[in-house]
């Protein structure tokens, strides 16, 4: 199971990391995609989150760079990329779990499969809503402060929930 998950993760990673290259084929985006692939491979080999986190960070920077140099706005494939990036991290987590933990029951994988399907649906929907809202209200002067407040609220909610769960 670990090998299958690792292969799926690597293939999905390749697709996610090469998307900015297809959007803006420059030497910099290609180099950054290569770095992301190398980082993810290292993460899969060592089963450390640092590799996957670094790869995702590089991919995010690469995407921002590609968006800056690209002409087509807004990017209609952004929700797909968002769900694929999230799925990539979840698959990496499952690959790490399969490698580190001993015997794992099949129902554990089933539970994770169900969770990924339901969450990816809602995440995809939310991404589309955010994209459409961003495209519609791009020229509105209140968009920047509203989105800043929303972003701060999202991060604060996540941190507060984490603190509540750990206390």
């Amino acid at each position: 199971m670990q090998a299958r998950l690792s292969v799926c993760c690597a293939l999905l990673g390749l697709a996610v990391f090469l998307y900015p290259v297809s959007a803006a084929p420059t030497a910099v985006t290609l180099a950054l995609a290569g770095c992301a692939v190398a980082s993810l491979t290292l993460g899969l080999i060592t089963s450390r989150w640092l590799g996957a986190g670094l790869a995702a960070g590089i991919a995010l920077s690469n995407y921002a760079l590609a968006l800056g140099s690209g002409s087509a706005r807004p990017d209609i494939y952004a929700p797909v990329l968002a769900v694929a990036s999230w799925l990539l991290l979840e698959l990496f987590d499952l690959a790490v779990m399969a490698r580190r933990q001993g015997q794992i029951d099949a129902e554990v994988y089933d539970a994770h499969r169900r969770r990924l399907i339901t969450t990816s649906g809602s995440a995809g929907l939310a991404s589309v809503v955010v994209l459409v809202a961003g495209a519609l209200f791009q020229a509105h002067p209140a968009l920047l402060p509203a989105s800043a407040i929303a972003a701060a609220a999202a991060v604060a909610t996540a941190v507060a929930l984490a603190r509540r769960a750990m206390s």
Binding site: A64, L67, G68, A78, A82, S85, T119, L131, G134, A154
Partner: peptide, 17 residues
Amino acid sequence: QPELVVVAAPLVISLVL
């Protein structure tokens, strides 16, 4: 760039859930 916020959306939803 709203596309970057779009990328963050699944992560935030996953965290909240």
